[in-house]
Write a protein that binds this DNA or RNA. Sequence first.
DNA 1: CACTCATGGAGAAACGTATCTCCGCAGGCT
DNA 2: AGCCTGCGGAGATACGTTTCTCCATGAGTG
Lengths: 385, 385
Amino acid sequence: MTAAANQSGRRPTTSRRLERAGIRDVAAAAGVSITTVSDALNGKGRLPDETRSRVREVAERLGYRPSAAARTLRTGRSGLIGLTVTTYGEEPFTFTEFAYFAEMARAATSAALGRGYALVVLPASSRHDVWGNIALDGTVVIDPPDQDPLVSELYRSGVPVVSDGKPGNCPVTAWVDNDHEAAVLGILDHLSEAGARRIGLLTGTSTDTYTRLSTEAYLGWCAKVGQEPVYETYPAHDPAAGAVAADRLLARPDRPDAVYGLFDPNGTDLLAAARRYGLRVPDDLLLVCCSESDVYAATEPPITTLSLKPRKIGTTVVNLLIDAIEGVDSGTGVDIARLFPPRFRTAGTGPPPGTLMPTELIVRASSQRRSPRTTVSPPRPPGEV
Amino acid sequence: MTAAANQSGRRPTTSRRLERAGIRDVAAAAGVSITTVSDALNGKGRLPDETRSRVREVAERLGYRPSAAARTLRTGRSGLIGLTVTTYGEEPFTFTEFAYFAEMARAATSAALGRGYALVVLPASSRHDVWGNIALDGTVVIDPPDQDPLVSELYRSGVPVVSDGKPGNCPVTAWVDNDHEAAVLGILDHLSEAGARRIGLLTGTSTDTYTRLSTEAYLGWCAKVGQEPVYETYPAHDPAAGAVAADRLLARPDRPDAVYGLFDPNGTDLLAAARRYGLRVPDDLLLVCCSESDVYAATEPPITTLSLKPRKIGTTVVNLLIDAIEGVDSGTGVDIARLFPPRFRTAGTGPPPGTLMPTELIVRASSQRRSPRTTVSPPRPPGEV
DNA sequence: CACTCATGGAGAAACGTATCTCCGCAGGCT
DNA sequence: AGCCTGCGGAGATACGTTTCTCCATGAGTG
């Protein structure tokens, strides 16, 4: 009768009743055109509220769900953001900074969802097999190595890329990182003030930005204050090697009286090694390590840790990326500087291409000689809930 | 000249040079039809190898990347698998079993990538906003609550769903879970054999499958051996409440001489509480907790842990899901029993709808009265790398 | 010689949506 | 009376694949 009749006249194939309802079916059932359905559901066009609500009602009744694939094809936006992790060895996630990554990914997921995007986890290893098969609106890259071909290709094909960790030579849309130099210098000063005479470092052998910048900061500080560097390195992705390296560091003839460990498990490893050598913490050895884990609040003694604030980083990275995705129509060589002029949401601070986030030092007993009481605390009566 | 000429004759819009090359451009450049390009690149059709390689070469030269959206629209397959986590409170991931989830997600990601799929992380909370906007070939659901509307809707709309954790009333394609009852009974027997007279339990207040089955197994065991149950509960998602509950458990007048803690941080919390009350582990108190973390290998003393084998679970869940996705054309009410007849890859063992995975008890000093040496081990000389 | 058959490949129809263009129709204005 | 304007909505096209159908050709076969 109405125009809807001859529209649904198409669909020449055999009678399939079990198909999911499409926008055509909704249009036919509501007695309007496809255009009207699309506009009504997406809040566009000029339609009286009555039509809008009627169409919505019909769509609901038919259980209509718009096809994400068709929408993506048409609009060029998938609502998907890649989360790429650099992989050491076979496993998709890096073992090192495990808690850091988990926290960061969690915050990133949350932030993305809050803005209508979802995260898909993609190791950098698997090449075009699966990479090319996913429509990505943008990508977060964690600690890209110099000259990463993957990042280059993504960037070249117009996909915005924001990296966690200052990139070496990759062209990225923006990046976020901690101020690793300031963090290390802060820790060294903190240990010095606590009475440390010779501060050692437990660091990694890999060349990622975090390890490199932190080690350089340590060496620079040593040169400045005139201390001979005392450090041991080990492959950070090997969980067993850390304990060995910790032992090695404390076995040296020029044994340090304070140690900073760059990686999460170093705290327990150093504590165990100290115990083996009969060193009391903090009396004989001051200890700090970088970790996001709260187990160090309950060790004996509790260990001072540096937090890289992965939640803040994850949130910021995603917000920068989505700003880039939504900010400019299609990044065909637009200059980065013009990318986010007005719509900067994280307080008009930093210069967009690179943002440095502060770290947080959580001071506990292991780095304080003048702690009020290093003995076992008196038993606490069982409290309320 | 050839047919390719008039095919590329279309594209009436204004001259856009910067567009990404499409399959049409490849066809025109190679002097063949679109069909031939598609067949050549996808390894289908009957084409001489010479044509195939020539087309591939041209595609490579033009930097052709097939549009994932178009492919998904046409084939109905996106290569994406949803990973849904039940959320407690605001955060997208559950705090409890944090390491478990991280390990499981890692294994699932790895397994999916190995078979050409990618994982997208989707909390169950965010409803149609983002859920409906993503084309999912299937979904992994972690510990779905009874009558989960989300799972029901997914299943009804034909998306395969495999759950980690035995589902209550949700209709799922398949599920995988640990044998929680056997695990708890094994631990209780282990503690009994080590000399425990009164075994306590630290458990949660939530109603998820894991907590429920484990607690029931404990109560059943108590009834069988005639021990009065001694347990404390706390909201497992609250990291601070665990320490309080541990303290409460050891402060009871009927203080247990052995404790099993259901959640990851219980080990350190119980150890700290024992220290406060002057209890030696394992001499005065035997300790076991469920954890995937290896920090318990380095505590003083090392703590016996139960591993739920998240890697095995993640791998199995994903393989089952992909089997279901690829096994049958479009799940319109096919009976589950016929779903995986031949192509079962994980050794022809389990009955498909539900699979129980064994757990692993990692016995350390905290649960052995006759440990060879509970004192500090002698300093080990610095070994080779 | 008339015929099947395998080979190599072209044409065109979907897939389901968003959106650009355009059209009819009132009512108010000059 | 003609004209403009705004409202409500229909038609058609394009997004970029995959794939079903079909055609031309030359070689083998009775």
